[in-house]
Design a protein around this nucleic acid. Structure first.
Lengths: 223, 223
DNA sequence: TGCGTAGCGAGAACACCGTTCTTGACATCC
DNA sequence: GGATGTCAAGAACGGTGTTCTCGCTACGCA
């Protein structure tokens, strides 16, 4: 096991620093990230950035992957602070964890859940980190394992396949409820983070918790 | 009543034409709209556009307002094609109308429901058109007027005020369910339009209908 | 130990962008 | 018919992403 060469290490540190500055600019200026501005902050000329990222889109992609990982880590950490048998507590912890991360990092949230940047196509590296949160929710519902009332539902083969990789399959009704909850979570956060919700300027946290409990009810979690 | 002067009319027609070309560019290139490209398409120099719109943001604002109006009109038209006493039919018609418009105009949808453009602050002209669809849904639920089970809910004073302008007030439980459905509708469409939903590439329409029916159930609409 | 090479930052260049200002032409109104 | 206001054009400014060439430095290998 050869240690990484000094060259490689300083290169990786420089990449991290570029991303850190880019994140700061992202938080300040929104989605239009300027390579030249980032370079200025690093006392570097713009073209030097191309030694580390082949294009602006590549830098954005790196930020997107980091954001997915960061979000999933925040949600996972919030959940693991709750006793495993407190299903509803874990559920709410995941939802709150996602919300708090989103409110703390609105620009990065917009990067991963807002309108996609025009010419940009999400590379396949981004699909795996993107599924972590919904798998977290699905695992909680699977732990509950209640008997659901039958409900007419379309086939969700892809999600079946996704969960099958973990531990067998999941009843379609459960998957359906998880999808509803997941959609509701991000629908709510989109409105809140993107400021489309002029309503309810007060008591947003209570509103959020209440609706996440509603979704937990729908998913069959015990009260 | 003096007829609008010829000057005023040709000016308004030119404004419409600029918006039409801008919409075309928006559909092609996504959210980064170039004034110079629009001007080129009109065989016009870029600075000439400033006679009609004081800035790029102003043009975007005009497009946003048009999009809200267009979307509300599409949803309203879909709903009014259904008999008034078919509550569930009206509900589904609104949802499908919104979805079809969104899929047909993804860039404009992104403009109004995606991440906000960075430096841009939505002027107050945009809040009234933005409420039309949710008022449409609220009206259907109000027509049903079922007795809801009591549910703990945060105060939704703003939405109360909004609906109070129409015809009296609405029970909080109903408002709550309408909000859930509204959030779910746009959460679903965000995933679909922005391509975040790699799952369920097949049977998306069935998936959509099924979930909109779920929300109708939740809102207390008769089957 | 010395050398070739690969990685690095600087800087100039290109084509594009939004925006402002000036200039000259044209239609409109008194 | 002359004054007025609107219009398109064009140049200019500062900004952007990206490419290329240039020296320089440090690493890896003989």
């Amino acid at each position: 096991m050869s240690a990484p060469s000094l060259r490689a290490r300083v290169r990786s540190e420089m990449s991290q620093e570029i991303k850190a500055v880019a994140r700061r600019h992202l938080a300040a200026d929104g989605a239009n990230l300027s390579l030249r501005a980032v370079a200025r902050d690093l006392d570097i000329v713009a073209s030097a950035l191309y030694r580390y990222f082949p294009s602006r889109d590549a830098l954005l992609t790196a930020l997107i992957i980091d954001a997915y990982d960061d979000l999933a880590a925040a949600a996972g950490a919030a959940e693991s602070a709750v006793p495993r048998d407190d299903l509803r507590g874990r559920w709410i912890a995941v939802c709150r964890g996602v919300r708090e991360w989103a409110l703390a990092h609105p620009a990065e949230y917009g990067l991963i859940y807002g309108s996609p940047v025009p010419g940009y196509a999400a590379p396949p590296d981004t699909v795996e980190p993107a599924t972590k949160v919904i798998l977290l929710l699905a695992a909680i519902v699977a732990d509950a394992d209640p008997s659901f009332p039958a409900v007419p539902t379309a086939v969700h083969e892809d999600l079946q396949r996704l969960t099958a990789d973990r531990d067998g399959t999941m009843p379609e009704e459960q998957l359906d409820r998880v999808l509803v909850a997941w959609t509701h979570l991000y629908g709510t956060l989109n409105f809140e983070v993107f400021g489309r919700l002029t309503l309810m300027i007060e008591a947003r946290s209570a509103y959020f918790d209440h609706h996440m409990h509603l979704m937990a009810d729908l998913a069959g979690l015990p009260r």
